[in-house]
Design a protein around this nucleic acid. Structure first.
Length: 277
DNA sequence: CGCATTTCCTGGTAGC
DNA sequence: TGCTACCAGGAAATGC
């Protein structure tokens, strides 16, 4: 599932290819009209000025004063080669090959739409998004203050994208394991010191995954069609029944906010009554 | 307003 | 083998 490291990997591959190119055609394929592809056709005729990223969203400013917004959802794949199935969008580009961008999305959770620059009224998560985790603005002071105003379980609040951008189920679990924090701990109970540990863990795990071109569990591919190699470095996610790499206790799987959640019940304890089952 | 629940969608897999 | 049932999950919509 594409989270920040996967989207950043895709962004780095797309940028040298797409920046400065004019879009000559933009059309939906095998996908019903709707908000997930709103205004897509408006991309035609405009030049792509840059390929940026905010959290898990790709943002491509256009010369027309609008922005092309792409979210890969769970199974979205961008490629210069046509997919065998589940093609949703084709973007034709001016100039020599490769000059076609294909968007494949089996489960249709992805988005590919055009909005006026900065107008994120149809994208509330993007509009309320917290700081980029790899920027200096994301630090212990900032995170501690952001967490202080939420009664949600820590992991659930991280997934909301409001305290920090870009974390999904995999990297939230990995960062919480690394910083030894329990995912069910109320966000507001995180101390300044714990916030510092969590900031360091988030920066470390995301940086390491970007260096490995992300994590492929099943669907994710880079634009070049390669697999992300970070899977072998996961410590907690997907490791139920395996020994914790730090203490040897069995990693367990619980549900937090409806999401499958992996943790070490020994390393990630906290005061209070948050049972692990 | 804030948080919880439901919805979208289909490949993969467990169970029979 | 082939069928049904159910799970996975990011973000939006809906409910309370």
């Amino acid at each position: 599932m594409p989270e920040l490291p996967e989207v950043e990997t895709v962004r780095r591959e797309l940028a040298p290819w797409l920046a400065g190119r004019r879009v000559v055609a933009a059309r939906r394929v095998e996908a019903p009209p709707g908000p997930k592809y709103a205004g897509l056709e408006q991309a035609a005729g405009a030049v792509i000025l840059a390929v940026a990223r905010r959290g898990k969203f790709l943002i491509l400013p256009l010369s027309s004063g609008r922005e092309l917004i792409i979210h890969l959802g769970m199974t979205g794949i961008l490629s210069p080669n046509p997919p065998a199935r589940h093609l949703r969008v084709v973007l034709g580009l001016e100039g020599g090959p490769p000059n076609t961008l294909y968007f494949q999305d089996a489960r249709r959770f992805g988005r590919f739409l055009v909005v006026p620059q900065g107008d994120y009224r149809s994208l509330p998560t993007l509009a309320q998004m917290g700081p980029e985790p790899l920027e200096p603005e994301f630090n212990a002071r900032q995170l501690h203050a952001a967490l202080a105003c939420s009664a949600m379980p820590l992991k659930s609040y991280l997934l909301s994208q409001r305290p920090v951008a870009g974390l999904g189920n995999i990297y939230a679990d990995e960062a919480l394991w690394q910083s030894r924090l329990h995912p069910r701990m109320p966000a507001a109970q995180v101390s300044k010191r714990q916030a510092g540990a969590l900031v360091a863990a988030i920066k470390a795990v995301l940086s390491a995954s970007i260096a490995a071109q992300g994590t492929t569990l099943s669907d994710y591919r880079t634009v070049n069609g390669q697999l992300g190699a970070f899977r072998s470095q996961l410590k907690a996610y997907g490791h139920a029944g395996a020994p914790c790499p730090r203490c040897g206790t069995e990693i367990i799987k619980i549900t937090v906010g409806g999401r499958g959640t992996y943790l070490c019940p020994r390393c990630q304890r906290h005061r209070g009554s948050y049972a692990d089952a």
